[in-house]
Amino acid sequence: MSYCVHCGVELADSEKKCPLCGTEVIDPRAGKKKDVLPPFPPHPVRTQQQVSRQSLVGLLTLIFLIPILLCVVCDASINHRIVWSGYVVGAFLQLYVTIAVPLLLSARPSRHNSVLSLSLDFLSLLLLLKYIEWETGGTWFWTFALPVTVLTAAIVIAINLIALRTELSRLAISAIAVICTGVFCLALELLLNFAFHLRSTIAWSSYPLITFLLLGAVMLYIDRNKPLKEKLIQKFFL
Protein backbone atom coordinates (compact mmCIF):
# COMPACT_ATOMS: atom_id res chain seq x y z
CA MET A 1 0.00 0.00 0.00
CA SER A 2 1.63 3.21 -1.12
CA TYR A 3 0.28 6.64 -1.85
CA CYS A 4 1.50 9.07 -4.47
CA VAL A 5 2.86 12.04 -2.51
CA HIS A 6 1.97 14.24 -5.45
CA CYS A 7 -1.55 13.14 -6.41
CA GLY A 8 -2.76 11.73 -3.13
CA VAL A 9 -4.12 8.58 -4.74
CA GLU A 10 -3.36 5.14 -3.45
CA LEU A 11 -1.29 3.04 -5.83
CA ALA A 12 -1.79 -0.64 -6.54
CA ASP A 13 1.16 -2.80 -5.49
CA SER A 14 2.08 -3.42 -9.12
CA GLU A 15 2.88 0.26 -9.72
CA LYS A 16 6.54 1.24 -9.47
CA LYS A 17 5.72 4.87 -10.14
CA CYS A 18 2.52 6.87 -10.12
CA PRO A 19 0.69 6.33 -13.45
CA LEU A 20 -0.79 9.82 -13.17
CA CYS A 21 2.29 11.98 -12.57
CA GLY A 22 5.30 9.66 -12.91
CA THR A 23 6.52 10.22 -9.33
CA GLU A 24 8.42 7.17 -8.15
CA VAL A 25 7.04 5.26 -5.23
CA ILE A 26 9.45 5.52 -2.32
CA ASP A 27 8.37 4.13 0.99
CA PRO A 28 11.35 4.18 3.35
CA ARG A 29 9.67 1.92 5.86
CA ALA A 30 8.36 -0.70 3.48
CA GLY A 31 11.76 -2.31 2.99
CA LYS A 32 12.15 -4.54 -0.03
CA LYS A 33 8.71 -4.82 -1.58
CA LYS A 34 8.07 -8.20 -3.05
CA ASP A 35 7.27 -8.18 -6.72
CA VAL A 36 3.59 -8.19 -7.57
CA LEU A 37 2.42 -9.26 -10.99
CA PRO A 38 1.48 -6.31 -13.18
CA PRO A 39 -2.09 -6.26 -14.55
CA PHE A 40 -0.74 -6.97 -18.04
CA PRO A 41 2.26 -8.94 -19.26
CA PRO A 42 5.36 -6.77 -19.73
CA HIS A 43 5.62 -4.96 -23.03
CA PRO A 44 8.36 -6.35 -25.26
CA VAL A 45 11.02 -3.66 -25.52
CA ARG A 46 10.92 -2.51 -29.06
CA THR A 47 12.50 0.71 -30.18
CA GLN A 48 11.54 2.65 -33.22
CA GLN A 49 13.40 1.03 -36.12
CA GLN A 50 15.91 3.35 -37.72
CA VAL A 51 16.46 2.86 -41.43
CA SER A 52 20.14 1.98 -41.62
CA ARG A 53 22.30 4.28 -43.75
CA GLN A 54 23.80 1.33 -45.54
CA SER A 55 20.44 0.06 -46.71
CA LEU A 56 19.47 3.55 -47.86
CA VAL A 57 22.69 3.88 -49.84
CA GLY A 58 22.15 0.41 -51.25
CA LEU A 59 18.71 1.41 -52.47
CA LEU A 60 20.12 4.63 -53.92
CA THR A 61 22.82 2.70 -55.75
CA LEU A 62 20.28 0.40 -57.36
CA ILE A 63 18.10 3.34 -58.40
CA PHE A 64 21.10 5.12 -59.94
CA LEU A 65 22.12 1.99 -61.82
CA ILE A 66 18.87 2.01 -63.82
CA PRO A 67 19.42 5.23 -65.86
CA ILE A 68 23.16 4.61 -66.10
CA LEU A 69 22.80 1.12 -67.57
CA LEU A 70 19.90 2.16 -69.79
CA CYS A 71 21.89 5.03 -71.30
CA VAL A 72 25.00 2.96 -71.87
CA VAL A 73 23.08 0.09 -73.47
CA CYS A 74 21.03 2.48 -75.60
CA ASP A 75 24.08 4.44 -76.75
CA ALA A 76 26.18 1.37 -77.43
CA SER A 77 23.48 -0.46 -79.37
CA ILE A 78 22.80 2.52 -81.66
CA ASN A 79 26.33 3.85 -82.15
CA HIS A 80 28.26 0.63 -81.47
CA ARG A 81 30.48 2.61 -79.13
CA ILE A 82 30.15 5.11 -76.28
CA VAL A 83 29.25 8.48 -77.81
CA TRP A 84 27.10 10.52 -75.49
CA SER A 85 26.28 8.23 -72.60
CA GLY A 86 29.65 8.90 -70.99
CA TYR A 87 28.46 12.38 -70.02
CA VAL A 88 25.22 11.04 -68.60
CA VAL A 89 27.07 8.43 -66.59
CA GLY A 90 29.51 11.06 -65.38
CA ALA A 91 26.73 13.43 -64.32
CA PHE A 92 24.92 10.65 -62.48
CA LEU A 93 28.09 9.55 -60.72
CA GLN A 94 28.69 13.15 -59.66
CA LEU A 95 25.14 13.31 -58.25
CA TYR A 96 25.63 9.94 -56.59
CA VAL A 97 28.80 11.11 -54.82
CA THR A 98 27.01 14.28 -53.71
CA ILE A 99 24.14 12.35 -52.12
CA ALA A 100 25.64 9.04 -51.02
CA VAL A 101 28.85 10.25 -49.35
CA PRO A 102 27.14 12.46 -46.73
CA LEU A 103 24.68 9.63 -46.04
CA LEU A 104 27.46 7.12 -45.45
CA LEU A 105 29.49 9.57 -43.38
CA SER A 106 26.55 10.48 -41.15
CA ALA A 107 26.68 6.98 -39.68
CA ARG A 108 29.85 8.11 -37.88
CA PRO A 109 29.17 11.67 -36.75
CA SER A 110 32.17 13.95 -36.86
CA ARG A 111 32.41 17.69 -37.31
CA HIS A 112 34.65 17.28 -40.34
CA ASN A 113 32.20 15.19 -42.33
CA SER A 114 31.10 18.17 -44.37
CA VAL A 115 34.70 19.08 -45.28
CA LEU A 116 35.39 15.51 -46.31
CA SER A 117 32.29 15.15 -48.44
CA LEU A 118 32.84 18.56 -50.07
CA SER A 119 36.40 17.57 -50.97
CA LEU A 120 35.15 14.35 -52.52
CA ASP A 121 32.50 16.28 -54.46
CA PHE A 122 35.09 18.59 -55.97
CA LEU A 123 37.44 15.70 -56.69
CA SER A 124 34.79 13.85 -58.63
CA LEU A 125 33.87 17.09 -60.42
CA LEU A 126 37.49 17.42 -61.53
CA LEU A 127 37.45 13.87 -62.86
CA LEU A 128 34.22 14.57 -64.75
CA LEU A 129 35.67 17.76 -66.27
CA LYS A 130 38.87 15.93 -67.26
CA TYR A 131 36.78 13.25 -68.95
CA ILE A 132 34.79 15.85 -70.88
CA GLU A 133 37.98 17.57 -72.01
CA TRP A 134 39.45 14.25 -73.16
CA GLU A 135 36.27 13.19 -74.92
CA THR A 136 35.82 16.53 -76.71
CA GLY A 137 39.54 16.96 -77.48
CA GLY A 138 39.81 20.28 -75.65
CA THR A 139 42.87 21.84 -74.04
CA TRP A 140 41.25 23.78 -71.23
CA PHE A 141 41.52 21.49 -68.23
CA TRP A 142 44.95 22.30 -66.87
CA THR A 143 44.90 25.99 -67.66
CA PHE A 144 41.30 26.83 -66.71
CA ALA A 145 39.02 24.10 -65.30
CA LEU A 146 41.51 22.87 -62.70
CA PRO A 147 42.41 26.29 -61.24
CA VAL A 148 38.77 27.49 -61.17
CA THR A 149 37.56 24.32 -59.51
CA VAL A 150 40.38 24.26 -57.00
CA LEU A 151 39.81 27.93 -56.19
CA THR A 152 36.06 27.38 -55.74
CA ALA A 153 36.74 24.33 -53.58
CA ALA A 154 39.25 26.26 -51.50
CA ILE A 155 36.78 29.09 -50.88
CA VAL A 156 33.82 26.81 -50.07
CA ILE A 157 35.84 24.55 -47.78
CA ALA A 158 37.52 27.47 -46.08
CA ILE A 159 34.19 29.14 -45.30
CA ASN A 160 32.87 25.80 -44.10
CA LEU A 161 35.87 25.43 -41.76
CA ILE A 162 35.49 28.99 -40.49
CA ALA A 163 31.84 28.30 -39.73
CA LEU A 164 32.76 25.09 -37.91
CA ARG A 165 35.82 26.25 -36.05
CA THR A 166 35.11 29.82 -35.04
CA GLU A 167 32.46 31.53 -33.01
CA LEU A 168 31.77 34.13 -35.70
CA SER A 169 28.15 35.16 -36.18
CA ARG A 170 26.21 34.10 -39.23
CA LEU A 171 26.37 37.65 -40.51
CA ALA A 172 30.17 37.76 -40.27
CA ILE A 173 30.50 34.44 -42.08
CA SER A 174 28.14 35.68 -44.78
CA ALA A 175 30.30 38.81 -45.08
CA ILE A 176 33.41 36.70 -45.60
CA ALA A 177 31.55 34.67 -48.23
CA VAL A 178 30.50 37.87 -50.02
CA ILE A 179 34.06 39.22 -50.01
CA CYS A 180 35.38 35.90 -51.29
CA THR A 181 32.84 36.02 -54.12
CA GLY A 182 34.21 39.40 -55.17
CA VAL A 183 37.77 38.13 -55.13
CA PHE A 184 36.65 35.02 -57.00
CA CYS A 185 35.23 37.18 -59.82
CA LEU A 186 38.58 38.92 -60.19
CA ALA A 187 40.46 35.63 -60.23
CA LEU A 188 37.98 34.23 -62.74
CA GLU A 189 38.62 37.05 -65.19
CA LEU A 190 42.39 36.74 -64.79
CA LEU A 191 42.20 33.00 -65.42
CA LEU A 192 39.95 33.51 -68.44
CA ASN A 193 42.37 36.06 -69.84
CA PHE A 194 45.32 33.76 -69.24
CA ALA A 195 43.76 30.52 -70.48
CA PHE A 196 42.06 31.85 -73.60
CA HIS A 197 44.37 34.81 -74.31
CA LEU A 198 41.51 37.34 -74.23
CA ARG A 199 43.14 40.55 -73.07
CA SER A 200 45.89 41.67 -70.73
CA THR A 201 43.90 44.01 -68.49
CA ILE A 202 41.00 43.67 -66.08
CA ALA A 203 37.67 44.66 -67.61
CA TRP A 204 34.37 43.53 -66.08
CA SER A 205 35.43 41.96 -62.83
CA SER A 206 36.23 45.25 -61.14
CA TYR A 207 32.49 45.97 -60.86
CA PRO A 208 31.50 42.84 -58.90
CA LEU A 209 34.78 43.07 -56.96
CA ILE A 210 34.04 46.60 -55.71
CA THR A 211 30.36 45.83 -55.07
CA PHE A 212 31.02 42.62 -53.14
CA LEU A 213 33.92 44.10 -51.16
CA LEU A 214 31.83 47.07 -50.08
CA LEU A 215 28.81 44.89 -49.31
CA GLY A 216 31.00 42.59 -47.23
CA ALA A 217 32.50 45.59 -45.43
CA VAL A 218 29.02 46.93 -44.63
CA MET A 219 28.00 43.53 -43.28
CA LEU A 220 31.12 43.29 -41.12
CA TYR A 221 30.53 46.81 -39.86
CA ILE A 222 26.96 45.99 -38.88
CA ASP A 223 28.16 42.81 -37.23
CA ARG A 224 30.65 44.73 -35.09
CA ASN A 225 28.16 47.40 -34.07
CA LYS A 226 25.80 45.56 -31.70
CA PRO A 227 23.20 48.34 -31.10
CA LEU A 228 22.94 48.95 -34.84
CA LYS A 229 22.50 45.23 -35.43
CA GLU A 230 19.75 45.05 -32.81
CA LYS A 231 18.01 48.06 -34.31
CA LEU A 232 18.13 46.55 -37.81
CA ILE A 233 16.82 43.21 -36.55
CA GLN A 234 14.04 45.06 -34.78
CA LYS A 235 13.04 46.88 -37.94
CA PHE A 236 13.53 44.18 -40.55
CA PHE A 237 12.89 40.85 -38.82
CA LEU A 238 10.85 38.34 -40.79
Partner: peptide, 10 residues
Protein backbone atom coordinates in the same frame (compact mmCIF):
# COMPACT_ATOMS: atom_id res chain seq x y z
CA UNK B 1 -13.10 9.91 -2.19
CA UNK B 2 -10.41 7.29 -1.75
CA UNK B 3 -8.93 6.23 -5.09
CA UNK B 4 -6.63 3.32 -5.86
CA UNK B 5 -4.81 3.52 -9.18
CA UNK B 6 -3.57 0.64 -11.28
CA UNK B 7 -2.20 0.84 -14.80
CA UNK B 8 -0.36 -0.87 -17.62
CA UNK B 9 2.22 1.94 -17.85
CA UNK B 10 5.42 0.83 -19.52
Amino acid sequence: LSVTIESNQR
